[in-house]
Measured scan of single mutants.
Amino acid sequence: DRHTIHIGDITIHLEGFSEEELKLAEELIKRGIHLEEVKRILEELYR
């Protein structure tokens, strides 16, 4: 499954994450956390 996060003019595609995980990812990215770090956090929390 493919999910999309929109932040301003930026569109990020993250596959294989639930709606809850994507909301967390979006919040972290909006707070300035680097995408690679966001992915690592999600994997630690949900895998």
Rank of each mutant, 00 (worst) to 15 (best):
D1S: 04
D1W: 00
D1L: 03
R2D: 10
R2Y: 13
R2N: 13
R2S: 11
H3M: 07
H3R: 02
H3T: 10
H3S: 06
H3D: 09
H3W: 13
H3K: 03
T4G: 05
T4N: 07
T4F: 02
T4S: 08
I5P: 04
I5F: 01
H6D: 08
H6T: 13
H6L: 08
H6Q: 14
H6P: 04
H6E: 09
I7G: 05
I7S: 08
I7H: 08
D9F: 11
D9A: 13
D9H: 12
D9M: 11
D9P: 10
D9I: 09
D9Y: 08
I10S: 07
I10R: 06
I10L: 10
I10M: 11
I10E: 06
I10C: 07
T11C: 00
T11E: 09
T11N: 01
T11G: 06
T11I: 09
I12H: 04
I12L: 11
I12E: 02
I12R: 02
I12W: 08
H13T: 13
H13P: 03
L14Q: 01
L14K: 01
L14W: 08
L14V: 06
L14P: 01
L14N: 01
L14A: 04
L14D: 01
E15L: 14
E15K: 13
G16K: 06
G16R: 10
G16S: 05
F17K: 02
F17I: 07
F17D: 03
F17C: 05
F17M: 06
F17A: 06
S18P: 05
S18R: 09
S18N: 11
S18A: 09
S18Y: 06
S18E: 06
S18D: 07
S18F: 06
E19G: 11
E19A: 13
E19L: 15
E19W: 14
E19Q: 14
E20G: 07
E20W: 14
E20K: 09
E20Y: 14
E20S: 09
E20D: 09
E21N: 06
E21A: 15
E21R: 06
E21D: 06
E21H: 13
E21S: 09
E21Y: 15
E21P: 11
E21M: 14
L22I: 11
L22H: 08
L22Q: 07
L22V: 10
L22T: 06
L22F: 11
L22M: 09
K23D: 04
K23G: 05
L24I: 10
L24V: 14
L24P: 00
L24D: 01
L24M: 13
A25S: 02
A25P: 00
A25E: 01
A25C: 02
E26Y: 15
E26C: 13
E26L: 14
E26I: 14
E26T: 14
E27G: 07
E27C: 05
E27A: 14
E27T: 15
E27F: 15
L28M: 11
L28P: 00
I29D: 00
I29K: 01
I29M: 07
I29Q: 01
I29V: 09
I29A: 02
K30A: 12
K30I: 09
K30C: 04
K30E: 03
R31W: 15
R31H: 03
R31L: 12
R31E: 03
R31C: 12
R31G: 04
R31I: 03
R31T: 06
G32D: 02
G32C: 05
I33A: 04
I33C: 07
I33K: 07
H34N: 11
H34E: 09
H34L: 12
H34M: 09
H34S: 14
H34G: 13
L35A: 07
L35V: 07
L35M: 10
E36C: 07
E36P: 09
E36Y: 15
E36Q: 08
E37T: 11
E37S: 04
E37G: 03
E37L: 14
V38F: 09
V38Q: 00
K39S: 03
K39F: 15
K39Q: 09
K39H: 04
K39G: 02
R40M: 06
R40F: 02
R40N: 02
R40G: 01
R40H: 04
I41T: 01
I41L: 08
I41Q: 03
I41C: 03
I41P: 00
I41A: 04
I41W: 12
I41H: 01
L42E: 00
L42D: 00
L42S: 00
L42V: 09
E43C: 15
E43V: 08
E43F: 15
E43Y: 15
E43Q: 11
E44W: 15
E44K: 06
E44A: 11
E44C: 15
E44P: 00
E44Q: 06
E44N: 05
L45G: 01
L45Q: 01
L45E: 02
L45Y: 08
L45R: 01
L45N: 01
Y46D: 03
Y46A: 09
Y46K: 11
Y46H: 07
Y46R: 15
R47N: 13
R47C: 04
R47G: 14
R47K: 13
R47L: 14
